[in-house]
Design a protein around this nucleic acid. Structure first.
Length: 466
RNA sequence: GCUCCCAUCGUCUAGAGGCCUAGGACGGAGCCCUCUCAAGGCUUAAACCCCGGUUCGAAUCCGGGUGGGAGCGCCA
């Protein structure tokens, strides 16, 4: 039987970084086994589900490059089917109407809590034959009362639940809409899902789902519950830890593949290997090697991974994201050196694309103001003299090539009897507005002669006035 | 409270009874290199939660404790 996995988020917000990881695991598992990866939108809670959230999820998945193999399924479009299945169960006696009011249930729970018991439905409508007039009933699943359910979890191993611990959960609300646990079961069954890879928070739902599946005569899929991601302080990851939505990671300057690489190593490992190509991830990933304990999210490590990707990736592959960041800074990248060339020149010193964009802005836009400290330190009267001489040298260059620029700069330092720093640093501040840039020959070459000379002149004037 | 899960450096992890004087990576510290910032190279500090048991031998197996997490809705 071929593998079918699925990612089933509820559209009540952005695509969470933890959700992205379970999606990735599902995706990789399907890819590895030549199966299918499906996407299902669990929007049965019409109160909280929004179209904007659906879009946010699609956008996030697309940015990460986690494409589903078929059109996404929306649960709200399957209400008819859930109703049919519920009716079948009613007929078969595996489900029954319950007329208890919310107040009644509430009271029951309170009493159980007071007795220090686990709050659960006590099955008082199980054998009711007559409807309660004027009450719209809910439909409950008739859970087996004896025996146990064994969840053979791919990650956690066997987990045993006593049926006596489980109660009769509601599968259809009094307004006729189906509930989560019921939709999941019907969908996983009819979508032919063979491997359910999902968050840890669903383990306790699993025995119920298996019971319903069995009542339906279906073979339960395999389950793998991946531990959640914690914040750096060991507490559940939330907004106060910073970015949680995957699109925020784009804004922070991360490459999608770097995010994926970081995520796959969070809770999973393959020996000592840290970096994986997409192909390696698909080939090497193994759900059974996923860690059982939750892992903390470490931004520092992500930054490192991202930097590694920036350094290794072909510049053509990062140009798109780089452009996006430049434009975000209000810079028009068309007017200046090729993005690929700038990436090559900058990537050693930039760990994120935000950093790269900020440090590369000067290639595409005029220097609005010098960094105060850098200007004070390097644009001195002595530097004015050097800049002056340099302008003359550069103007005279027969060819605007890195080698020629290099020779001119070094030659000038020698002629003036100063260290290279004494000429390179003023140049940096002059052309970049700050004392940080790629190697000076590279920088001037990319910037172009025209722009270089204008900025050198401006800086010379600025320095001379001091 | 009840049910279920988990536990190796600060963090992510390797480790499936002797290969462990516990390895790698991020981060930290130091040194080298150097036109800035980096990158790179080298060195270094840093962990098996505790207590019992099994065994010739336990980070690895078992039991208990402690600590963390998840779930207990007409939410998903």
């Amino acid at each position: 039987m071929s593998v079918v996995t699925r990612f089933a988020p509820s559209p009540t917000g952005y695509l969470h970084i933890g959700g992205a990881r379970t999606a990735l695991f599902s995706y990789l598992y399907a890819r590895k086994h030549g199966g299918k990866f499906l996407l299902r939108i669990e929007d049965t809670d019409r109160e909280r589900s929004t179209d904007a959230a659906v879009k946010a999820i699609f956008d996030g998945m697309e940015w990460l490059g986690l494409a589903a193999d078929e059109k996404p399924i929306f649960q709200t479009q399957r209400f008819g089917r859930y109703g049919e299945v519920a009716q079948d169960m009613l007929k078969a006696g595996t489900a029954y109407h319950c007329y208890c009011s919310k107040e009644e249930l509430e009271q029951m729970r309170n009493e159980q809590m007071a007795r220090k018991e686990k709050p659960r439905y006590d099955g008082r409508c199980r054998h009711r034959t007559e409807p309660r007039p004027g009450v719209q009933p809910v439909i409950r699943f008739r859970n087996p009362t004896g025996g146990a359910v064994v969840v053979r979890d791919l990650i956690k191993g066997d987990i045993v639940f006593q049926n006596a611990e489980l109660d009769d959960l509601i599968i259809v609300r009094s307004d006729g809409t189906p509930t989560y646990n019921f939709c999941v079961v019907v969908d996983d069954w009819e979508m032919g899902v063979t491997h359910v890879i999902r968050g840890d928070d669903h383990v306790n739902n699993t025995p119920r789902q298996i019971n319903i599946l069995s009542a339906l005569g279906a073979t339960p899929p395999q389950y793998g519950h991946v531990p959640m991601i914690l914040g750096s302080d060991g507490v559940k990851l939330s907004k106060r830890h910073g970015a949680v939505s995957v699109v925020e990671y784009r804004a922070l300057g991360f490459l999608p593949d770097a995010v994926l690489n970081y995520l796959v190593r969070l809770g999973w490992s393959y020996g000592d290997q840290e970096l994986f190509t997409r192909e390696e991830m698909q080939r090497l990933f193994d759900i059974e090697r996923v860690q059982k304990a939750p892992a903390r999210f470490d931004m520092e490590k992500l930054v490192w991974v991202n930097h590694e990707y920036l350094k290794r990736e072909a510049p053509e592959n990062v140009a798109g994201e780089f452009r996006w960041h430049l434009e975000r800074l209000g810079v028009q990248p068309a007017d200046g050196p090729k993005l690929e060339d700038v990436i090559l020149a900058q990537r050693e010193r930039c760990k994120t694309l935000v950093e790269m964009a900020e440090k590369s802005k000067f290639f595409y836009a005029d220097v609005a103001a010098y960094n105060e400290k850098d200007a004070a330190k390097h644009l001195t009267p002595a530097a004015a003299d050097i800049l002056d001489a340099l302008v003359a040298e550069l103007k005279a260059l027969p060819e605007w090539k890195p080698e020629a620029i290099h020779a001119a700069v070094h030659g000038l330092a020698e002629k003036k009897g100063v260290g290279l720093g004494a000429v390179a640093q003023p140049i940096r501040v002059a052309v970049a507005g700050m004392a940080v840039s790629p190697p000076i020959d590279r920088t001037l070459f990319l910037l172009g002669r025209e722009r270089t000379l204008v900025r050198l002149e401006a800086a010379r004037a600025y320095a001379a006035k001091k």
